[in-house]
Design a protein around this nucleic acid. Structure first.
Lengths: 343, 343
DNA sequence: TGTTAGCACTCGTCACATTGGAGTGCTAAC
DNA sequence: GTTAGCACTCCAATGTGACGAGTGCTAACA
């Protein structure tokens, strides 16, 4: 069977009306569609074909049709080819308080959730390939030293280091100098065991305590592996009857509360084959890696703020999601994020 | 009408069975209760009295009785008098990673949620009355200075300060000395406008830039007003049919997602009149300050880790909550928290 | 050959009546 | 004061039938 132009128009019409209403759509409804000028009977024949081809299906014998996963997939794929998204302005949002990454990300997901009526999520930026700007050790008290680490992108991390014996001011000063002359400008990955052991040699004196401190610093630098995930709008699931029965809603919202499982939806994007659009990833129904979301669709996009700070942002909603709008918004948002730190 | 001993036993029996089943309880059920040896007819008479007194009510004419808010209230009040809670061990939980407050709190709410099957929340400790341990300014680049502030309780805060003109090393060193000699040992409240303006005078030179820096530091110190709230187990609401219809569940879970509204449930405890127990606060049904929770009960308890770090932890569940157990666990938990930092 | 009108058929939904049982209140007897 | 018995109430579960939306098929039409 061939997918001709008329079938495609009908399929689009079915999907669009289903997106709006959430209810199976019948042949008569489609026959009223302006672009088409066919009787319901003809539509029925075409629908029958489309069903055979696997793009739509019937919940029960005498109901209308709803799109299948394959139908959505076709729709989304053609959509992304056709569309080159116009850029609307979301920037005002960004301007407030750039200084604290966490707040920014929370604002972003909240904004997204409010504007799409779906559940949203974002991963904090990974710090790979980020260079160190400086490190500062300070004496807190007899048994504790505070390490403050600042990256090129102004992300600040603290680490309290407990020691059995205190260190005197001089040693700390020396260590600061040592750390800064040797590590500044290096990326996180470049600071590994061998770098550290070289430092240890160079330090020489007090080698036991010093190496304790250095180990702690190295650990703090590399610790960033557990990426934070921020979410918002989990209760939006209730807006879609097909997801809001107790069992499903409970599972979905739990997943959003736990946050960790979401990581599997937000893996670093696959290698972009065709440049531009490849950073948008769409999972439809069964395609999603999370079992809880087999009745949902997931759209994610990656952002890259430069300086090695990159992450993913995404939304989760019913399969009858307004893909068009969602993809548009995500593209736009990531573009804004990309430019944010380049200024 | 007098509340005699038999009425009290019957009321307790009604509440307990209702807590378990969630369904109106009839006279026959109660008549089987081991402590009582009465026929269902007698129970009915007593129930009729209890209803007149306002402690129980009938959802409809031919249904069993359920406890009213007043009934729960009486139950809880007597409960808290009677009970002196035995201390079970939750401590292992605490031992892992004390160093990061945030992780600890997240663990605590998760633990609570898992053990009670209710939704749980905790406020991060306020920093009032906490003394400063030290402040460290560092030059990040031409236009930025990083302020690191450490409190007596080892809570660390960073603040990036942007300036139009850079500062030279010497000035920063002087400022560090100035800040540390004047502010160390003071509590957060003691550092107010007048303290700062005194500092500004003392600094003298460069007064415009210096005052910018000082203002930023003061702001960072006092900024702690927006207390973080951590939550867990919001989806536990689904476990109770009376809360899991779409509208109610959606509202409740939204409230838990937003977090801010919960603050009104976690206000600093009222002045303890009778010492020991007064830190437990129970809201039943309409009593709670949040409208969304008028079908719930809320139990909160305060913890005080010493050094001015205190906060509240609480749980939210259906009115038929296992008050006995919950109060026990909360008492125990807060006791553990109280002792945690005293070691 | 493609399109359309018509018709019988399917099946879920809604309104309504029916029934069973749990629970009550009241009364009379112990 | 306690209890057994009985009539009564009302919810919840179940069944029934009408309705309507939607289909597939067939036959007629352009």
């Amino acid at each position: 069977m061939q997918m001709d132009d008329r079938k495609w128009t009908i399929l689009k019409a079915i999907i669009k009306t289903y997106l709006e209403t959430g209810e199976p759509v019948g042949s008569r409804t489609i026959s009223k569609y302006p672009d088409l000028n066919l009787s319901s009977a003809t539509i029925r024949n075409e629908m029958s074909d489309l069903e055979e081809m696997g793009y739509i299906l019937q919940p029960h014998t005498s109901a209308g049709r709803i799109p299948s996963d394959a139908g959505y997939r076709l729709y989304v794929d053609r959509m992304m080819e056709e569309k080159e998204q116009e850029v609307t302005e979301i920037r005002e949002l960004m301007v407030q308080r750039q200084d604290r990454m966490e707040l920014l990300l929370k604002q972003v997901v909240k904004f997204l959730a409010a504007n799409t009526n779906y559940a949203t999520m974002i991963t904090g930026p990974r710090l790979h390939h980020t260079r160190l700007k400086f490190i500062q050790l300070s004496i807190v008290d007899d048994s504790q030293i505070l390490a403050v680490i600042v990256t090129e992108t102004n992300v600040v991390k603290n680490r309290m280091i407990r020691l059995e014996h205190g260190l005197d001011r001089e040693t700390v000063l020396k260590l600061n100098l040592l750390l800064n002359t040797n590590l500044n400008g290096l990326t996180i990955e470049q600071i590994n065991l061998s770098t550290i052991s070289k430092l240890k040699e160079e330090a020489g004196i007090h080698s036991d305590i010093v190496s304790q401190v250095l180990d702690a610093v190295a650990e703090a630098i590399n610790q960033e592996e557990d990426v934070e995930i921020y979410t918002s709008g989990a209760t939006n699931f209730f807006k879609y009857p097909e997801l809001s029965d107790t069992a499903k809603a409970s599972e979905l919202i739990s997943t959003f509360e736990e946050k960790h499982p979401l990581a599997s939806l937000m893996l670093p994007s696959e290698i972009g084959e065709d440049g531009e659009n490849s950073n948008i990833q769409v999972y439809i129904g069964q395609e999603t890696p999370l079992d809880t979301m087999k009745d949902c669709s997931v759209v994610t996009a990656s952002y890259d703020m430069g300086g090695g700070m990159y992450g993913r942002v995404g939304i989760v909603g019913p399969k009858r999601m307004d893909y068009d709008k969602v993809i548009g918004i995500l593209k736009n948002l990531t573009q804004q994020l990309d430019e944010l730190y380049k200024k």
